[in-house]
Design a protein around this nucleic acid. Structure first.
Length: 273
DNA sequence: AAACGCGCCTGCGGGC
DNA sequence: TGCCCGCAGGCGCGTT
């Protein structure tokens, strides 16, 4: 489900719990992608205060006041939301965080592809989950030189490399499709065949699409909601994703569908070359 | 070394 | 109506 813009929006809509103390953590189901570290949650997160909430790639990170951090990955169907504790929680709600503010944060994840880690804040960036992550797409590190240097010999398709979190972090299937439409580049092109000017268009498209999606509060195709339960609106701006057979917003020709690395891929064969 | 394909889960929509 | 199949926003691992 959530790609970078969705996690960024959850981060923003969760800022009002910064400063709160977590009084109690209830793990209703510890069988996520990897077992929930119940012991570490009890020992290092429970009874401590949330100092800061940030994002790296698609990870939501709560830095606590005792030098530990909680990292949360939402997988495909994960949600983090703020609720009144007396309300009934929905099916597939796996973890409850009771705050001293009287609110309750709930982690819900029907498909259970998400996962949580408790890591020393100092060791976060060298932790195996974070060590090999690529650069943030909105940072100045993402530029033509970086992509050329990383990918000038790659025989993978340009769409597949954009979705490789070890190259650029946070871009998933929706935004990879949209970025390449805006760049005017066919997703099945091999990375090593892109010209300097095509990499330049790619960099521009990454930054504008990701920033516009954040501004729109993310993409709600079916069930994505931010931490306050509100949907995003970037689905209204999608040009290719999920639009097979519908007219291209630029030229009117039919949007095409194929599969790349097992992922649904959408493009306009006229506007993208 | 780099790249591919599979498996992990539940829910939903389409076809019959 | 109901069943079955394929597909879904991500990631890590084993294999080649």
């Amino acid at each position: 489900m959530p790609e970078l813009p969705e996690v960024e929006t959850i981060k923003t809509t969760l800022q009002d719990i910064v400063g709160a103390r977590i009084d109690k953590i209830s793990v209703l189901n510890k069988r996520l992608r990897w077992p929930v570290p119940v012991q570490k949650l009890d020992q290092f997160i429970q009874t401590n205060r949330i100092m800061r909430i940030r994002r790296r790639s698609k990870y939501l990170i709560w830095d606590m006041d005792n030098g530990y951090s909680l990292s949360i990955h939402l997988g495909m169907s994960g949600r983090v939301g703020q609720f009144r504790p007396e309300t009934i929680h929905e099916l597939h709600t796996h973890i409850l965080f009771d705050l001293d503010t009287g609110w309750q944060i709930r982690y819900r994840d029907p498909r259970r592809f998400g996962f949580l880690d408790v890591i020393r804040s100092q060791e976060l960036l060298t932790h195996p989950r974070f060590r090999n992550l690529g650069i943030e797409p909105l940072s100045s590190e993402l530029n033509v030189d970086y992509l050329k240097q990383s990918l000038s010999h790659s025989v993978r398709t340009v769409k597949t490399v954009l979705m490789d979190a070890g190259i650029v972090a946070g871009i998933g299937n929706i935004y990879a499709n949209e970025i390449l439409f805006h760049a005017g580049i066919l997703p099945q092109r091999l990375a090593k065949t892109l010209t300097e000017s095509e990499w330049k268009k790619t960099v521009t498209a990454v930054k504008t699409v990701i920033q516009d999606a954040i501004t729109a509060g993310g993409t709600t195709l079916s069930d994505y909601r931010n931490a306050q339960g509100e949907p995003g609106y970037f689905q209204l701006d999608l040009c290719v994703y999920g639009r097979t057979g519908r007219p291209c917003r630029i030229c009117g020709k039919s949007i095409k569908y194929t599969k790349l690395s097992g992922r649904s891929t959408f493009f306009c064969s006229h506007c993208q070359t």
